[in-house]
């Protein structure tokens, strides 16, 4: 009796798991499918015919390139800013004791706990109050608010595992502050920074809400896509771009996965 039950239960689980996975991933496959449809005004299933012409159309559209370029530049700079500020903040909070330490820790995390729309409105009113015109840099600033949190969270967890005596040992053996950072701190937090940086980049790359409030006339890729959906013509171009984004973001994630896995075993050995 018992063995019958335990034999049938995994079957039900398998079906449930398969259904769950299909629900998650079939829509993504549909995006791929519609990138090759001949119908350009609506998403008709099954597609009446298949064509590769949208690849060429997307390639020739300057607005696609402008949006993609802007998104990459914003995400890169926001990530760079977040890596520097997030690491410094994590180092201060985890390695030293000072008045208001817990409060600062909370304040840093707050932007990601608050709904994006609050951050967006707050930044927009702050920019208009200070009479800062909307530009590339206002988008970067908006994105950096939550990118810092992601880097900080990753770094602070790792910093806690790097005991303070390692840093003291390095100084004791004759390394100054810079050498200690280069040879002891960085190898120990490197993979955490890589993971935090990638997550920050991904968050910035597909951010819509904060961007809507902090961008002027410029379009990042997600905002370009939103506007494209209401246009009646050349809809499959959006799908071509979406497909490209999936491929382009998947590769670095896989690469980072293998890099960090290897890094756990040999970090610092090649020096």
């Amino acid at each position: 009796m018992r063995s019958d039950r335990s034999a049938s239960a995994p079957m039900g689980l398998k079906i449930a798991a398969a259904a769950g996975l299909l629900f998650l991933h079939v829509p993504i496959l549909l995006i791929f499918l519609y990138a090759f449809t001949t119908e350009e005004k609506s998403y008709q299933f099954p597609p009446p015919g298949y064509t590769l012409k949208w690849l060429a159309v997307a390639w020739d559209r300057p607005d696609v390139w402008a949006a993609l370029g802007l998104s990459v530049r914003v995400a890169s700079i926001a990530t760079a800013v977040a890596l520097v500020l997030g690491t410094l903040c994590a180092a201060a909070v985890s390695q030293t004791r000072f008045f208001g330490r817990e409060t600062i820790s909370l304040l840093v995390i707050l932007p990601i706990a608050l709904p994006g729309i609050i951050t967006g409105i707050a930044l927009r009113s702050a920019f208009s109050f200070a009479e800062i015109p909307f530009s590339f840099w206002t988008i970067v600033l908006g994105h950096a608010t939550f990118c810092v949190v992601v880097v900080y969270n990753n770094a602070v967890a790792r910093f806690r595992r790097v005991s303070g005596s390692l840093i003291e040992a390095s100084m004791d053996l004759g390394a100054d502050g810079f050498q200690t950072f280069r040879y002891v701190i960085l190898p120990n937090i490197g993979t955490a920074l890589l993971a935090g940086g990638m997550l920050a980049f991904a968050l910035s790359f597909d951010e819509v809400i904060v961007t809507t409030f902090t961008a002027g006339q410029q379009q990042t890729l997600p905002i370009w896509m939103l506007e494209e959906l209401v246009r009646p013509r050349q809809r499959p171009v959006t799908n071509v771009v979406a497909m490209l984004v999936v491929l382009v973001t998947l590769l670095p994630i896989l690469a980072a996965y293998y890099l960090t896995r290897e890094g756990d075993q040999v970090a610092g050995a090649g020096k």
Binding site: S165, L166, A169, S170, D172, P187, G268, A269
Partner: peptide
Amino acid sequence: VNTVFQDYALFPHLS
């Protein structure tokens, strides 16, 4: 002056 630490403080990422 050099120190031998109570928890040894060996660098875990180095041989």
